[in-house]
Write a protein that binds this DNA or RNA. Structure first.
Lengths: 232, 232
DNA sequence: GTTAATGGGTGTAAATATAACACTAATTAT
DNA sequence: ATAATTAGTGTTATATTTACACCCATTAAC
C-alpha cells in the first residue's frame, strides 16, 4: 500500500485567514473592518478574511488577502493564533489563522477598501464583531503592545519620515497610556536606530520638528550583534 | 442559492497537530521525541503528531494526541504557531498547528511511550528532526523562556511539592543560564505564590530542604488584582 | 513690530530594581 | 570527631526607571 494512502483516512478542513489590520492616523490607533455583504450575518462588522488555497502557503494567503483589500504589498504581517473551535462559524467548520498587519494609513487604497465595504474604526470604538473576531482583535492588541516593547515594529505604522512627537503619539495610542516626553526621547534615541534628517516637519508646529527615519540596517546590525531593543 | 455553497469553491486541507513535549528530570530540560514507524522518513526522529478530526476542535485534537502518547490528561498545552508551507511535508499538503506541553516526567506512562517509539532527549542533545520540526522546537523553547518570565507556568514541570533548589534548577535549565541562589530565592518568594510546607525533602541533601507548593488560588487572586509576576 | 500662542526640545536628582558577593547551619557517612 | 554535602541567609554597589519645569523657534494676530 503506498504510504500516501495513510492520509486518506483523515478529515480535511476549510482553512481561512482573518486579518487584524492596524493603521495610525490622527493620533489614534485604528482598525480596518468590513461590513459583510453575504449571509450569515450580512451587515455585521467583521475582519477581512479569505480562504487558503491549495497552491499557496498560509502566509502567502494572508499576503494575498491583505492585498485584495488594501492594494498593499510587502506589509508587516504576523501570525497570531489559529482558531479551531468546531462551531466558531455558523455554516461550516472553518479553521481560521489570524494575522495582524501594520499599515501606513496614507498608502492605503481607499477606493479599493470602499468597494469591499471597509471602514476604519478607532481602537476604542470597535463595534461588536462577528464570530470570534472580537477575541482575535484583543489578542492582536496584546501582541502588538508586547511586540512594540521589544521590537521596533511600530515604525511600520508611520510614514517613512516622522517626528519624535508622532512616534510618541503612536506608542501612546498602542499602549493606551501617556509617556513622559523627555524619558521617551531619551530612551528611543539611546537605541541608536533613528537617523535625524536635515528636514523639519512644520505641519504640526510653528517651530518645526526634526524628521527622523528608522535605520533598519543599523537595527539589523545591532540585533545580529546581540543588542536588544527594549522600550519602556 | 444557499449561502453554504459559498464554501464549496474553496480548497480543503489536512490539518495536523505537532506537539513539543517538555519534561524536566535530572536537572535537565527534556523533549519527548518519537522514531517514525512509517514512510516517509521511517526511522527519523519527529515530534508527536496527529490529524485534526471533523468533530473536534484544534485544541481538543492537541489534548487527545498528547494523551495518546503519554497517557496524561489535563496537561498544560499552549498553541505556538501554525506552519503552512505548501511543501512542508513530503507526500501531501498538511497544515500543522504546533503546541507545546509541559509534563511532570514522573507521571508519564513509559510503557505507552515505548509502544510509540518515544524517547526523552536532553534539550541540548536533540537529534536532527524531520520536516520543519526543528524550527518548531526552537520556537517552543523561545516561547517557554519568555513565558516563564512573566507567568509561573514552570511549575507544571515539577512535582506538586518541590524545593527551592529544584525550582531554581528548572529555571536554569529552561533559561540555559545560572541564577544567583540568594537573588533567585528572594525574587521567587517575594511573589508570594509559594507556600512553604512543614515537610522537608531529604533526597538531595543531608540537611533536608523545605518543600513548597505553588498556590494557584493566590496566584489567580494576585493576577485578578492587577499584580504581575515577573521573574529575572 | 510687539505679543501671544503653540508645539519642540532639553538635564538632573530621587527612587527603585538588579546584580554581586561569602559565610554559617544541619545532617549524614566515614 | 570530622569531613562532606546541600540549605539557608543580608548587605552594598550599580544600573535603570521615574518624576519633574523651563526656554526655544516660529507663526498669527493685533
Amino acid at each position: 500500500m503506498p504510504h500516501t494512502s495513510r492520509y486518506q483516512s483523515h478529515d480535511k478542513h476549510y482553512v481561512a485567514i482573518d486579518s487584524i489590520i492596524f493603521g495610525f492616523d490622527d493620533d489614534t490607533l485604528k482598525l480596518l473592518l468590513i461590513k459583510r455583504k453575504f449571509e450569515p450575518c450580512k451587515g455585521c462588522w467583521s475582519l477581512m478574511g479569505g480562504f487558503v488555497a491549495a497552491n499557496e502557503s498560509v502566509d502567502e494567503a494572508a499576503d494575498r488577502i491583505l492585498e485584495e483589500l488594501t492594494g498593499l504589498k510587502d506589509i508587516y504581517l504576523e501570525q497570531i493564533h489559529t482558531y479551531g473551535e468546531v462551531n466558531r462559524e455558523l455554516d461550516a467548520r472553518v479553521i481560521s489563522v489570524a494575522y495582524y498587519a501594520l499599515i501606513n494609513i496614507k498608502d492605503y487604497d481607499e477606493e479599493l477598501g470602499r468597494s469591499h465595504g471597509a471602514e476604519w474604526f478607532s481602537i476604542d470604538e470597535i463595534p461588536p464583531l462577528i464570530f470570534d473576531h472580537g477575541e482575535m482583535v484583543g489578542k492582536a492588541m496584546r501582541r502588538l503592545k508586547r511586540k512594540t516593547i521589544i521590537q521596533p515594529i511600530g515604525f511600520e505604522l508611520l510614514p517613512e519620515k516622522f517626528t519624535l512627537s508622532q512616534l510618541q503619539s503612536l506608542y501612546e495610542a498602542i499602549h493606551q497610556q501617556n509617556f513622559d516626553k523627555r524619558n521617551f526621547r531619551k530612551k528611543i534615541l539611546s537605541m541608536e536606530v533613528l537617523t535625524q534628517l536635515n528636514e523639519k516637519d512644520k505641519v504640526s508646529s510653528k517651530r518645526g520638528a526634526y524628521l527622523y527615519k528608522f535605520d533598519k540596517d543599523k537595527y539589523d546590525y545591532l540585533i545580529a550583534n546581540g543588542s536588544f531593543f527594549v522600550l519602556k
